[in-house]
Amino acid sequence: MRMGEGVEWGLHCCLTLAWLEDEAPVPTARLAAWFDLPPAYLTKRLQTLVRSGILNSTPGARGGFRLGRRPEQITLMDVVAAIEGPDDIFRCTEIRQRGAGLDTPAQEFQRPCGIATAMRRAELAWRRELVGQTVADLMAAAPATAADRTRRRYARTTG
């Protein structure tokens, strides 16, 4: 399994916006420069987060992005699902019923195979872990100076 880099970008932007919650909306250009990311691609990812209610967008010259919910209300799974989509990671196509399986009695296929069951269990565990962690948890786990450093750096670039 491999997630796109947009998940990392989205999570870092959410974390930064959480630390800058008292500031005006943060423009995409500023976030892109902050992380040395291509602005056009970052804008697409941030708009995806807006459509899912994770961020709010303010148009115009003084516009930008803010969190759409409090940090403790945004789970890592919210961001992953918004950027990557809600579909299951593993998709069983029942290949066991093709080829050599054509001669197998139908009752053997009434229950999901062990592979599909194991993959579903693993995915549910992964999703539970991401649902159980929020942007507020990321804030709490960050180095003690990260929030102040972010605010100071932002203040220097807006002056």
Rank of each mutant, 00 (worst) to 15 (best):
D88N: 12
L49P: 09
G53P: 04
R127N: 00
L55G: 05
R45F: 08
V135F: 03
L138R: 14
E123R: 00
D36T: 15
M3A: 07
E84G: 09
T93N: 12
A141I: 00
R91I: 00
Q73E: 15
E21D: 14
R51G: 08
Q110F: 08
T104S: 12
G85E: 10
M1K: 04
V26H: 00
H12C: 06
E5A: 10
D36Q: 11
Q73F: 05
A141Q: 14
T48M: 10
L20N: 02
R152S: 14
R152W: 03
D22R: 02
R70L: 10
G114A: 15
G159A: 12
G6A: 01
P39G: 01
E123M: 06
G63M: 12
G101L: 14
A29L: 07
D22G: 08
A118L: 11
A100L: 15
L76T: 00
A142G: 08
A116N: 01
L102H: 02
T158A: 02
L37W: 07
A122F: 15
R2T: 06
P27L: 10
G4K: 10
T158K: 06
V131N: 06
G159I: 15
A100I: 08
V135L: 07
G99W: 13
D78M: 09
P25S: 05
C92K: 04
I54E: 11
G60N: 11
A81M: 10
G10D: 02
R127K: 05
E72Y: 14
